[in-house]
Design a protein around this nucleic acid. Structure first.
Lengths: 195, 195
DNA sequence: AACTTACTTGAATGATCATTCAAGTACTTT
DNA sequence: AAAGTACTTGAATGATCATTCAAGTAAGTT
């Protein structure tokens, strides 16, 4: 047996960058060979086809975002503080002009939504897992007295996720930084409000 | 002079449907000739190229959404009631499987965002106008005593718009109808909350 | 009715696309 | 060191793409 010469993670992260810059459809195999450094034959050998490379990239994206998420919420702060830092981080991503800071899951979901059922299923499953992780942090904040325990945890989780989706799209309209920050603050306030 | 034989509005609405179904990139000229009933030469004569057809479709979309918006808010109800009906309508669109009920502006914005500056400019300008129209209705609701007048009208407008963007993306993950309705209700509640 | 003008038609064009595959290369095993 | 195995290479392939344009057709004008 002979080992593949390329670093799989590095290749997938390069592919992610390419897909984020142009979207799946507009990213040509030529773009992908340039971005990854792999020749067409190697890509097809390792990932079957362009769609397979997208699926593998989505999986790598999930792993990367998972460990990023854990870094935010493993801190010894209260859950509500970590949540605020996490939202601040997302706002800073939204304000960045670097396309690589966008969310591959929502980008791909918007583009391929009704076209490819399997890709959609994979994306939805990742997003749902993420939503549950956020809900778990909200539950923690409820137990720590920062959010009313009488509120529906799952509903609050969906509300935050909806808000983050909204922030990402809103950011495409080039709002002022302070406006985006204000929206994120409002979102968190509404979650915590005692009503 | 000889008049063109096709109905411009009808052609543009067919093009909108095609773009909404597949996205701009994946919609081929063949798709567009089939959808509009026009031959390639006629499309190029009338709209210059595929991109020109998109721009014309975006303009028609703006006109159509404008009159739709006016229908919702010309009613003799209180502004807050109209706003609720409008949100209900958007939720019902989100729940529909008909791709034609999606928003062409946000769909195109997500797809072409950083690729075509002029298209982005056009889309952002339409979305900003829409946001201002919503803010105007919020101002009305404030004057009618349904929303605290001390709140920043523009901020509330942005918040509702962010929420609608979020609802649209969230809907792609196939949530239950009641969950989406609950999110829209929460959005309106948070706007009206007295804090 | 003849002419001019402008729209319609749809096959042709050249570019670009994803994908293939046979030849080349390097690692592993014997 | 020789043989076998699997990865790499990149030009070739056929499909599909947006776009063009010359011929055809119908309306308006004289």
């Amino acid at each position: 047996m002979r080992q593949a010469e390329f670093d799989r993670q590095q290749v997938l992260r390069s592919a992610m960058t390419a897909f984020l810059a142009k979207g799946y459809s507009k990213t040509s195999m030529q773009d992908l060979t340039k971005a990854t450094g792999l020749h067409p034959g190697s890509i097809y050998c390792a990932f079957e086809n362009k769609r397979g490379l997208l699926l593998a990239s989505l999986e790598q994206y999930r792993l990367d975002r998972n460990s990023e998420f854990e870094q935010f919420f493993d801190a010894d702060n209260k859950a509500i503080i970590n949540l605020k830092h996490y939202l601040d981080f997302i706002v800073s991503q939204c304000l960045s002009c670097d396309t690589n800071q966008a969310c591959l899951l929502t980008k791909a979901l918007n583009e391929i939504a009704e076209q490819d059922e399997e890709v959609q299923q994979v994306i939805c499953s990742h997003l749902t897992t993420w939503q549950q992780a956020i809900a778990a942090q909200i539950a923690l904040a409820q137990s720590q007295g920062d959010i009313s325990p009488s509120k529906d945890t799952e509903h609050l989780g969906r509300y935050i996720v909806m808000g983050i989706y909204g922030l990402r799209t809103f950011a495409h309209t080039h709002p002022k930084a302070c406006e985006l920050e204000q929206l994120a603050d409002q979102l968190l306030k509404d979650i915590c409000a005692n009503r």
